Simulated assay, not measured.
Amino acid sequence: MSLLLDKKELKKAAKELTLVKLTDVIETLNGVLAERQQEVELIAKLEQLAKAQGYTLEQLGYRQSSDVVVAERSDSDSAKRPVKPKFKTINKESQFFYVENGQLQLLRTHTMKKGLQQRGIQVVPLAKVDKKFTKDIDKLIADATAQAIENFNSKVTIWNEWAVANGGEILEKR
């Protein structure tokens, strides 16, 4: 069940699934869904029984405990210090590229590299990019730089809000 909560693990598992495994997973998920539906029906019956006896589920402690857990999480999250953003410049010479569907693409993260190679897509450094794609390189770098600046500025906004409230260093946007 924890596999379903972790998106990275779910994506990794989805790549490894064959049709037979996929049908097994669907059957398992349908079983879990049926169990959850039975739980919902049971809770509804308990709620009706409690109302018939003149009680609410809150009085019996059912929803109070779940409300307390949610409240504790939101309090700790609001006081949590955000990660101080650092701007990382994109050095053209150190970038990697790959060709997918006849178009040159910039490798955004090195964690993508292994997945691309498993799919049979060759990842190459700038020096080994095919000459017919050289005109696309500057545009890809410019787009990546613009996105990096946008991401940095949004993180700076969050950081500065926290810094004002907690006396931290105020950062400038790019």
Rank of each mutant, 00 (worst) to 15 (best):
S94I: 03
Q103W: 02
V124T: 05
A144C: 01
K86N: 10
T134K: 15
Q117N: 15
N101Q: 04
T109I: 05
Q117S: 13
A127I: 10
K86W: 05
N101K: 06
F96V: 01
Q103G: 01
K128N: 13
Q95Y: 03
K114V: 13
R119L: 12
I141T: 03
Q122P: 02
T111V: 12
V124L: 05
A146G: 01
T134Y: 09
Q118K: 15
M112Q: 15
K92V: 04
K88G: 08
T109V: 01
I121R: 08
K113S: 11
Q117D: 14
Q105V: 06
K131N: 08
K131D: 10
I90N: 10
K84G: 03
K132D: 12
R108N: 07
L116E: 09
D143Y: 05
P82Q: 08
V129I: 06
L116I: 07
E100P: 06
V99K: 03
A144P: 00
A142G: 04
R81D: 08
D143F: 11
A127P: 01
Q95G: 04
A146C: 01
Q95F: 02
A79G: 09
Q117P: 11
T89R: 08
R119F: 07
T109A: 12
N91E: 13
L140F: 00
F133S: 07
K92A: 02
T145I: 00
